[in-house]
């Protein structure tokens, strides 16, 4: 039996008087790709941020590899990699310099060849590696950040709207990469409003609406999750 890498137990997050997450519970197993879907303001990014300690639970708990975010956030952060929705690395540094800087922050040592290998793996053109990030497109910045996440060798990967702004071929490459990582044992937690993309890559999908889990979809065998079913639930959320 695979161990649970992520556990949300009756997780609640409130901002002022507003409850953004209301009693959310789920588990994500090792090597699983779990996608949290929902519309704008559903609370999916807040759920992700609760796992990386960027927002504090007002009630309940979020655990990563058995460690609570309220007690062991430093240890948790050393085990996870995070890809924000809008990747804004440092424009005055090159792609390689950005990666080196962030790796140094994480106190991780990687050789030049390992960095280049990661950049190749995310299909960033070699001619862009040593040009300033301010010249990158959004997709190129996204790839740089993914390469950084790969280089961290983190057992858990958090992705916030990872395919937003990517062109279709880049999305395919990205989905392939996530599948490979998952096969290698990396646990992936992603939030998205892209139903089709999530169904292509996720083992399970949780549907979030107004801070509550209103649906859970699971792969059956090797088949992708049924896009129609998820889309239908996504469109009809809040009408039950």
């Amino acid at each position: 039996m695979q161990k649970d890498m992520l556990v949300a137990s009756s997780l609640c997050v409130s901002f002022a008087q507003h409850k953004v997450l209301d009693n959310v519970s789920f588990e994500v197993a090792e090597g699983e790709v779990f996608a949290l879907l929902g519309g704008n303001g559903a609370g999916k990014s807040t759920a992700l941020k609760a796992f990386i300690g960027a927002v504090a639970p007002s009630d309940g708990d979020a655990q990563v590899m058995g460690m609570s975010v309220t007690k062991d956030i430093k240890k948790i952060r050393s085990k996870v990699a995070y890809l924000p929705e809008s990747v804004m690395l440092y424009g005055h540094l090159t792609g390689v310099e950005n990666i080196k800087y962030f790796l140094s922050l994480a106190e991780i040592s990687k050789s030049q060849s390992e960095i280049e290998e990661a950049l190749s793996r995310v299909a960033l053109q070699p001619e862009a590696w040593n040009s300033q990030l301010s010249n990158y497109s959004k997709g190129m910045r996204q790839k740089t950040a993914i390469a950084l996440a790969l280089l961290r060798d983190a057992p858990v990967l958090f992705l916030d709207e990872p395919t937003s702004g990517l062109d279709p071929s880049a999305i395919d490459e990205f989905n392939q990469l996530i599948t490979t990582l998952s096969a290698d044992g990396t646990t992936v937690f992603m939030v998205s409003h892209d139903v089709y993309g999530a169904c292509q890559v996720a083992h399970r999908i949780g549907l979030l609406d107004s801070g509550k889990i209103v649906g859970m979809f699971e792969r059956e065998g090797d088949a992708h999750i049924d896009t129609e079913a998820v889309h239908s639930a996504f469109s009809n959320r809040g009408q039950a």
């Binding site: 941020k49 990386i52 300690g53 960027a54 430093k74 952060r77 050393s78 996870v80 990699a81 995070y82 924000p84 809008s86 990747v87 804004m88 690395l89 440092y90 962030f102 922050l105 994480a106 106190e107 950040a145 950084l148 961290r152 958090f158």
Partner: peptide, 18 residues
């Protein structure tokens, strides 16, 4: 404001040192 804060604090081994 630049959207890097969460990435920085999640990546940094020690946020205070950063």
């Amino acid at each position: 404001a630049a959207g890097r804060y969460d990435l920085l604090v999640v990546t940094a081994a020690n946020e205070r040192k950063l």
